[in-house]
Design a protein around this nucleic acid. Sequence first.
DNA 1: CACTATGTTCAAAACGTATTGAACGCATTG
DNA 2: CAATGCGTTCAATACGTTTTGAACATAGTG
Lengths: 167, 167
Amino acid sequence: MNAEAQEIRRRFVEAAGHLTQSLGGGRVIGQIFAHIYFSPEPQSLDDLTRSLHISKGGASMAVRQLEQWGALRRVWIRGDRKDYYEALDTLGYIVRRAFMDVIGRKMETSDGLLEDAEQALKPAKGGRAASDPEAEFMRRRVARLRLFRTRAQRVWDSSILKLLLRK
Amino acid sequence: MNAEAQEIRRRFVEAAGHLTQSLGGGRVIGQIFAHIYFSPEPQSLDDLTRSLHISKGGASMAVRQLEQWGALRRVWIRGDRKDYYEALDTLGYIVRRAFMDVIGRKMETSDGLLEDAEQALKPAKGGRAASDPEAEFMRRRVARLRLFRTRAQRVWDSSILKLLLRK
DNA sequence: CACTATGTTCAAAACGTATTGAACGCATTG
DNA sequence: CAATGCGTTCAATACGTTTTGAACATAGTG
């Protein structure tokens, strides 16, 4: 691989590392993906530890994570006992799976909370009396939150679809 | 404020704290916003430190951040020297501004990187010779990345619009 | 104009999390 | 079947970031 290509790859590795780090995924994940994405030949764990100066353990874990998100694919090379990896470039799918994995659970949790609150604030049955203004305030806030939640969900779903629709 | 309402607020505070923490913003920001959002009366810095058991310094910084995102609004109460805050509930706008603030800069940085790479890989002018397959590989990858970047931008813009369009 | 109440700043500390590296297990090979 | 190569695990560590709290600045008050 010529020097210029290496330099370009190096810069992408750096940037991707910063990106995944700032998103809370750790620097190594971004670095590894970028390195492989910009390597014409499949890369082994050893290649990674050597090129990126990271530990074998860290490389192993990051690689498995990336595999789970469909970002990397194992490649066997005959006569070689090492595992090699190459990058897929279905970026949309990869990002989707990664986000789902990271954000998904939290959404469900927050839904439960909303439902609990709605339940607890339900106006007393049949009571015609002027309702407690404090409870009324809480109800309005919870309702707004629910509305926001619904919309955010719709936007998320349709955005993801749009992003992935074209090959 | 009655006990039940307080309990509901407490749970939202907890959840919001976890949320903003996991997004890399720190626990306090989410806690403060949730607390004020679910408080019928405007809250002072003192109220916050007392209710949430956080330091005055932390509260001060978080409150200013939230103000910048348009999440909180200062309220003056006559005859009281404290600053009081109340929450806006234009959640869409708030989230937008917060995301812009956090993510915005990174996008610009990565654009520069893409342009540099495209420039560096531009095929030699007028050369009809079979091009270097290695450079060709790099070019394809950069091109895919560019495409993804463009689409992500479009999705982002239109999603944000959709989310905000309805009052 | 001293005194008090309030908000802000910032260095230090507490905290959580990513990363390392040694120990391990498993498979392959001669 | 011992020796080697490879990937994985996990406790210890290093690191970055959030949070604290004391010192400070500022504005109001008697």
